[in-house]
Design a binder for these strands. Structure first.
Lengths: 144, 144
DNA sequence: CCATTTTCCTACTTTGTCAATAGGAATTTA
DNA sequence: TAAATTCCTATTGACAAAGTAGGAAAATGG
C-alpha cells in the first residue's frame, strides 16, 4: 500500500512546473537540481507524463517542459495513474475486467471496493493547483 | 498501493476461522484446503497472527487455531498491519516518527495525511464479524 | 555550418520484496 | 510409540523499484 518514489517525484515535478509564473519552459536539469532528484531518473518519469498528455516538451537550448493544461485541471489521480499504474488496493476492483469469477461468494470484495472508492475520491478531486496552494515557500517542497 | 497476498490470505484465514460455529480448533491443513492456499505459506502467515495475539494455537492431533477474541473485536486493520506492516501511503505519515524534516515546506504532506486517514477510517472500523456478514455461503470465500 | 543545449530512447544494474517451497524439530494425543 | 499437529529457519525464483549509463535526435545562437 505504498506510493513509490516514481509517483511522488512525478507530483513534485508537476508542482514545480506549475509554480513557475513566467511562461518559460522548465528543463529537467532545473527541476532535478531544485528537487534534489537524479536527472536521469526524472527524465524517465517526465516521459510518462509527456506521453500521457500532462506536459509538453520543447527541445534544444532554452527548451524544457510546460504543463499542457492549467493546474486546476490536472488531478493527483492523473499523475499517479500514469506513473504508478492503477491505484486500486487489489486486482479484483481494478477499472476494467480483471475481475474474480467468485466475486459473488467473496466476503472481502466490499471492503476492497470501499477502500478503492475512498482513495479515488481523494486523488481524483485534488488538483495540482490545490497542492501548490499548500506549498508554503516557492521552490522548497522537498518531502520524499 | 496494493495489499499483497499475505494480507488478503490473512483476512480469508480469519474469516474462515470465525465462520466455524463449533468451538473446535481449525488446523492449517483444513483452511489451506478450503481456501486453496499453500499450507506452508499459510503457516507463516498465521504465525504472525498468533504472535500478534489475534489467534491462539493448540498443538498435537485435533489441534489448530482459535480466535483469541470475538470477531467483533478484531478489525481488518489489526490483521493487515500484522501481515503487511504499516498501511500508510508514504513513509512520512507513518504512525511513529519516520518523519520528514522538511515537512513544514512540503506541498504533498496534506494529501498523504488525508489518504492515510481515509484508509485507516475504513480498516479500523471494519471487523471480521462485518466481513463474515458479507459472506453469502459459508466456506466459499475464494476471492484473491 | 557548428558547437551547445536540451529532449528522446534503450539498455543495464543493483537491491530488495513477494510468494512460495522445503525440511525437520517440538509438542500433544490416542 | 506412532501420528498429527504446530513451530522454526533457510532457500528459491521471479519480478519490480530505483536508479545508472550512453548516445541519438532536434533546436538554437553565433
Amino acid at each position: 500500500m505504498k506510493v513509490s518514489t516514481k509517483g511522488r517525484y512525478a507530483l513534485r515535478l508537476m508542482i514545480n512546473i506549475a509554480s513557475r509564473t513566467d511562461g518559460k519552459p522548465v528543463s529537467i536539469k532545473d527541476i532535478a537540481g531544485a528537487e534534489n532528484i537524479s536527472d536521469k531518473y526524472l527524465e524517465q518519469i517526465i516521459a510518462l507524463l509527456n506521453s500521457g498528455g500532462l506536459v509538453r516538451s520543447i527541445r534544444g537550448p532554452q527548451g524544457g517542459y510546460l504543463l499542457r493544461k492549467p493546474p486546476e485541471e490536472i488531478t493527483v489521480g492523473m499523475v499517479l495513474r500514469l506513473t504508478e499504474g492503477t491505484l486500486s488496493p487489489v486486482p479484483c476492483v481494478e477499472d476494467e475486467e480483471t475481475y474474480c469469477e467468485r466475486e459473488a461468494n467473496c466476503a472481502t470484495i466490499n471492503l476492497w471496493r470501499r477502500l478503492n472508492k475512498a482513495i479515488s475520491d481523494i486523488i481524483d478531486t485534488t488538483t495540482i493547483a490545490d497542492l501548490c496552494a499548500n506549498k508554503p515557500e516557492a521552490g522548497d517542497e522537498y518531502c520524499i
